[in-house]
Design a protein around this nucleic acid. Structure first.
Lengths: 216, 216
DNA sequence: TTTTATTTGTTCACTGTTTCACAAACATTA
DNA sequence: TAATGTTTGTGAAACAGTGAACAAATAAAA
């Protein structure tokens, strides 16, 4: 039995749990209770227990959860692959920052190689082999499913090529709109939009408080 | 009347609309219908109409929405401030990439200045003035509400200082867990977690499809 | 071994979000 | 001006997610 029919909201919380659990494991913590974990991840104990229960009966009443076991189950059931092959498309400023950041072993795999249209960026100068964009189809690692996209031109065309190469998940840092077939999961990260969201929420909170104070 | 009591889910979609509308405006599009906009942003027309309706009766039956008016209302009602002052805390690889990216005028304001503990990073070498972290309280711009956090040490302490300086929104790139008082909005961005989420979703989709195919 | 204390897994009620479906409003054409 | 076609704005239904409460299960203590 594999994890199936897990609510989207829960799927989005799993990485949070996994991150906290790894840190606990590192610190030598062997067992944890939902209430305690709650204080680390800011998620209600009830929600934690329900989220975990989708993956089986992982805990013991009156005892809690075994950290090692929990991590093992997470990895197994959720298909975390420590050698998940990830490619980076676009070796600009952001791409280079990501390559430098590439200490993801034992968390989710690592960036295998990168691609860029600019041939002056090719080579191994950034710690990861950068190939010309022309060689995408040739150099993309076998079984690679995840691509990080940090380009700003020819986005749609590039996405089409990636999908043809078997990519099923894209972390999207472009500011462009593009289409991908169903079955390809896109996770867009846009600092500008994040800031806007923050501004909107801040303003919304503010006007709520004002309303409370003035009583109107 | 200001935007008030807007659902959180809606607030999170406003940046998406705004981005799409700006692009349409740039391309000379003057009017748009919810159905058409839907194809650009992958949100149901009905959801779009309801989201817009929180800000007033912006459209006209049988006609659609006026793009210019829509953008104007968004900016006004949501408090988008083109000179929203943003500070960057941490001038490492990622921080520098963001400074280089700092072309946000007419979208959401821009990074006014940055701070870093490492004095060798201080100065204007990256296009934005970088101050020593010691000078935070002194150099932080008046009225600054938003901070982008890209540090990896002393996170909690730094957050406390930022909050004391009046920061009410934090874009968080650290991989650490920290606490902030209510009223401070946090938007966490973690590439590793994003990749994991992607992997989980991809696997979840896969097992669903398999189940369908095998009929079991 | 029995009792007590603890913590899980899950049911139920509630709240928030999305979608359907349609009346009302307007643009457009004749 | 009247008739027609289109698209909004929204009430109400359906769906999804959250949190309180508690029975069942186990650990720990007596």
């Amino acid at each position: 039995m594999t994890a199936n029919n897990v609510p989207k909201a829960t799927l989005q919380r799993y990485p949070v749990y996994l991150k906290a659990l790894r840190r606990l494991q590192k610190n030598g913590v062997e067992r944890i209770m939902s209430k305690e974990l709650s204080s680390f991840v800011d998620i209600e104990p009830t929600t934690i227990r329900r989220d975990f229960s989708f993956l089986g009966n992982l805990g013991k009443q009156g005892y809690g959860y075994d950290v090692d076991k929990l991590i093992e189950i997470f990895n197994g059931q959720l298909g975390v692959n420590f050698d998940e092959k990830i490619i980076l498309v676009g070796a600009g400023n952001l791409g280079r920052a990501l390559m430098n950041y590439n200490k993801w072993d034992y968390v989710v795999g690592e960036i295998e190689c990168a691609f860029d249209v600019d041939k002056s960026k090719c080579g191994t100068q950034f710690g990861v082999e950068v190939y010309s964009m022309d060689l995408l189809e040739e150099k993309i690692p076998k079984g690679c499913r995840i691509a990080i996209l940090t380009i700003s031109h020819n986005v749609q065309e590039t996405v089409d090529r990636l999908v043809d190469c078997g990519i099923t998940g894209i972390v999207d840092f472009t500011h462009q709109h593009f289409l991908a077939p169903k079955g390809v999961v896109i996770k867009s990260i846009d600092v500008v939009s994040s800031i806007q969201e923050l501004v909107f929420m801040t303003n919304s909170l503010e006007s709520k408080t004002k309303k409370q104070k003035s009583g109107k």
